[in-house]
Amino acid sequence: SSQSQGISSSSTSTMPNSSQSSHSSSGTLSSLETVSTQELYSIPEDQEPEDQEPEEPTPAPWARLWALQDGFANLECVNDNYWFGRDKSCEYCFDEPLLKRTDKYRTYSKKHFRIFREVGPKNSYIAYIEDHSGNGTFVNTELVGKGKRRPLNNNSEIALSLSRNKVFVFFDLTVDDQSVYPKALRDEYIMSKTLGSGACGEVKLAFERKTCKKVAIKIISKRKFAIGSAREADPALNVETEIEILKKLNHPCIIKIKNFFDAEDYYIVLELMEGGELFDKVVGNKRLKEATCKLYFYQMLLAVQYLHENGIIHRDLKPENVLLSSQEEDCLIKITDFGHSKILGETSLMRTLCGTPTYLAPEVLVSVGTAGYNRAVDCWSLGVILFICLSGYPPFSEHRTQVSLKDQITSGKYNFIPEVWAEVSEKALDLVKKLLVVDPKARFTTEEALRHPWLQDEDMKRKFQDLLSEENESTALPQVLAQPSTSRKRPREGEAEGAETTKRPAVCAAVL
């Protein structure tokens, strides 16, 4: 046999249950609850290399294929790409003598399909299967379609040439079993990697079954959420508030809700932002270029202005709740996480202390139980975000031990490091100062900020419009641009040419 590394010779191994799959997660993409704000000051410096380099560890398999027929071997997927077919160049070659004697062998292509993985959001991997055969590759009886790919989820059954000719079961060793999710959700989405997690739940990458488009699904544990919100009269209202707010909003710089499922837990389906959180971008770069800050901040102002015009105060604006559309420097941003939002009543007064301390406005800290506050709290938070983006460190921090965090904020005395700000323009610093004003009545509004000289930049605004146009074009394009080929190089076993392929839609398939 010419099988590559990772293939075992026996096809009769006992199949494990899916609970053996491991679970991976990374930083929070968007969480309903406010958790302790991640610290920006503690960015690790590059460490000196050791005298002796450690040995390379043996790579762990990321997936496993269990053979369902004699003549096929099990495969431990270690590499990122595997070709399957009769050709000797394939990493998994159909060359077992037992297999060659079967009637089905002649229906398999020289290069029938490939399984591979690509880097997705949060640097996690996504597994795909890609059909290159004349007679078809099927996943859970659905045709992939020649020249098309679809994501592979845990426990997928792979069939060759005929939908009933099941050859492998695919085990993704990095994700959960699909069966743990409600059927209504599974009918519409293929669940994938964990993108982030918080005290009350997690955010998962998923794929729409009909279109193969990526989405983010925010899962909120009702049990954990009820415990964490025990002081509230009705904890469920917080989730329902977020859903109702998101459904009503329609702005290019605000995250869109696509679906909602109320089962044992809450499942909020949101558009996916491939670039992750602004927080991670700031930490990764230490600070952002001023031109990049301007492009992002302009969009934040437009989003918050839209919220305020619609009578909504976000109340928890922070870099973790600003998501980026891509890994590119120039990209769209979207505001997310409306769990603490407040729809303005007639009095415009709110007395609930919520939000993240580092970003809270002075009037929030001094008015607990005594007075109210209004939309100006969001403008203060925007000032803190702009400060961080321009400088790479927070204006107020618990680690300045000589003054408490509350006193720093209520006095408006931010930590100004001259040598850092020497590289920032006077106009940018002036806008920061106009937003970090203790008196909410004297603080800049979103309208005033948008009129500030720093943002009178036609090149930046043109760039934003171009990015918007690109997004609109990409969302308007159909996901499947061509029909699967019906040509046949070899006959199917026991049926006429093209008899099955043309009847089945290529579900969740995307043209390369």
Rank of each mutant, 00 (worst) to 15 (best):
K342N: 04
V368I: 13
L382H: 01
M300Y: 02
S474D: 07
K247A: 08
L246W: 03
E277D: 08
G311V: 09
I312L: 03
V282Y: 02
I255D: 02
K342R: 06
L301F: 07
K318M: 03
K256Y: 12
E473V: 01
W454C: 02
K503T: 06
S326H: 02
K433I: 02
I243Q: 00
P491I: 14
A449H: 00
Y298G: 06
I245W: 07
Y267D: 06
C354W: 07
S326Y: 12
C354E: 03
K334A: 06
T292P: 12
N250E: 07
R490V: 09
V322K: 08
W380H: 06
L288A: 12
V322A: 13
A496G: 07
T292E: 07
A371L: 06
L270W: 01
I268M: 13
T347P: 05
R351C: 14
L295N: 12
D280M: 08
V377F: 00
K256L: 13
E264Q: 04
I343G: 01
V304D: 04
V403M: 11
E448P: 04
E473N: 09
G284I: 05
P362F: 07
L249I: 12
P505V: 09
E458V: 14
G498Y: 13
L344T: 05
H308Q: 15
K433C: 11
K413R: 11
D378N: 01
R351K: 09
F338E: 00
V283M: 06
A291L: 13
I343M: 05
V364E: 05
K256V: 07
S325D: 03
H251V: 02
L512R: 14
T347V: 08
E329A: 13
E471F: 08
T347I: 13
L272R: 15
L324I: 07
S469V: 14
G412Q: 03
L477Y: 13
C253M: 14
L431W: 00
V368H: 13
T347M: 14
Q479A: 01
P357T: 13
E493D: 09
P453S: 11
R488L: 05
R287I: 13
P453K: 04
F261M: 10
A509H: 07
K433F: 15
G275F: 15
I257M: 07
N415L: 04
A509T: 13
I388N: 13
V366F: 09
G412R: 10
T336E: 00
L324W: 02
Q408E: 09
Y266P: 00
Q465R: 14
Q456R: 09
D466S: 09
K294V: 08
E309Q: 09
E497T: 12
G355A: 02
A496E: 09
V438G: 08
L272G: 12
L468N: 05
G339R: 06
D330Q: 15
Q483T: 05
D337T: 03
V432D: 03
F338I: 01
N374F: 06
L382V: 08
E423R: 02
D330M: 05
F260M: 05
A371V: 09
K489P: 11
G339W: 04
L288V: 06
R351Q: 06
I257P: 01
E495A: 11
T486P: 00
K247V: 15
T445F: 05
Y414H: 09
E290T: 09
L360G: 14
L332I: 09
V432Q: 00
I343W: 15
L249C: 05
T347F: 09
D316W: 00
S404V: 07
L307F: 15
I312H: 01
H308G: 02
E244H: 15
A376P: 12
L317D: 00
V368A: 08
H251A: 07
Q299R: 05
S381H: 07
K461S: 05
F416G: 00
P394L: 10
E290N: 13
E274D: 10
E363W: 10
L349Y: 08
